Amino acid sequence: MSKEKKVMRILYDGQVYAGQATGGINKYFNNIISRLPESFSPYLTIATKYQNHEITYPAHPNLKTFKYARFGFRPGRLSYWIEKYYFRFFSGLYEFDVFHPSYYSLLTRQDLNKYQFPVVITVWDMIDEIFPEQLDPYGNLRRQKQKAIVSAQAIICISENTKKDLIERYSLPENKINVTYLAADIDSSLSYGSEPVPDRPYYLYVGHRTSYKNFDGLLLAFAKVVSVRPDIMLCVVGPYINKAEAKLIAELKLWDYVVHYEYATDTHLAKLYRCSVALVYPSKYEGFGIPPLEAMSCKTAVVASNCSSIPEVVGEAGLLFDPDSASELADILLFLLDNPTERDRLIAKGCQRSKAFTWEKTVAQTLDVYRSVSIK
């Protein structure tokens, strides 16, 4: 007879939903919670804002949510003060088997070591530790993160590279750390709508463009490509183009070759992937790297950096390059334009490789972690 309880109660602190309307972490927890077996009872605490109707929350037949309308009454300081006690009350209302916060800080504003039930933390990357001067100059996030990591009974990393980086920076037993890969939420079946795509052959860039993402390096390489193939374009999906980026685009005389979509729906993004020559992913560090996996799922070629976790995701299904070499990237981009047969081969390999990454597998491995630490 199985020793597993008939019902396992999992508490999820929904801090991440208060911080962003959409994003990779939201999707991760939506997929985990929504795919839990019906023998599980998930509990989710959420701090809502007035105009947050665009946020997608998880769905599960046993899901119980405890919502607090942030700044729902005045004065705002009083509302903010009450909020932590509201969440502390609900966190103490039941005996939970596992606590899985969505971020390193909590809506209760308590440290994780205050909780009497096992804690599982997902560590996404070591970006703040590797690029502290750019992303966490005062060390606030690193201190929060360190407290969470030390307090957790089990840690989930989203790649072997993140696990390696974590072990290098913290004195942790390796058997405390589990690797569960992510999965794509879109594929080529979504890509046949009426959404617009550039009317010339184009390379695609998707996501934020913070300094370590190496967008400047892509622009330098792309300028070399345009000098040889002026029929090609660069399609950029992500936040508005800032002043520094606009200045570099102007200096490189690329404005006639760049098209920008600040936001794209899943169906639009899938079509932009499929219709592109390739996704270009020049990042110098990623905890996982969802865009290359989405690109492979949407049947386009992938050109990506050869560092951090990216080779784990792409494998031999893409063309990898040194992110510090704009010339190497330019040569690869030109090679793909001149060799459509090689592009077709990469697309076929990528489509096959993408099938190895599924949310079903991610959830099954996450459940193994929950069971390993849950109260007996």
Rank of each mutant, 00 (worst) to 15 (best):
P58A: 10
I186W: 02
E54Q: 12
V226N: 03
Y80K: 12
P37Q: 11
L44M: 10
Y104M: 11
R142D: 08
A184K: 04
E245P: 01
N52A: 15
P37R: 11
K361F: 07
G24D: 09
S325D: 08
S194T: 15
V259Q: 03
L166Q: 07
Y202F: 12
L36T: 14
V369I: 13
K3I: 15
T56V: 15
L44Q: 02
Y68N: 09
L319M: 14
D368E: 14
K361T: 09
A356I: 14
F90H: 00
Q51N: 06
S79Y: 04
Y170E: 14
E360Y: 08
K164H: 00
C307L: 04
A148I: 11
N30L: 08
A264P: 03
L141Q: 12
F288R: 00
V120W: 01
T65P: 08
D216T: 14
I130M: 12
F40R: 02
M1K: 09
D187H: 03
P198D: 03
K176T: 13
V123H: 07
A148S: 09
K164Y: 01
Y17V: 11
P58K: 04
I156N: 06
W359L: 02
G92W: 10
A21M: 13
R200G: 02
R77Y: 14
Y261L: 10
Q116M: 11
A364W: 05
A154L: 06
Y43C: 10
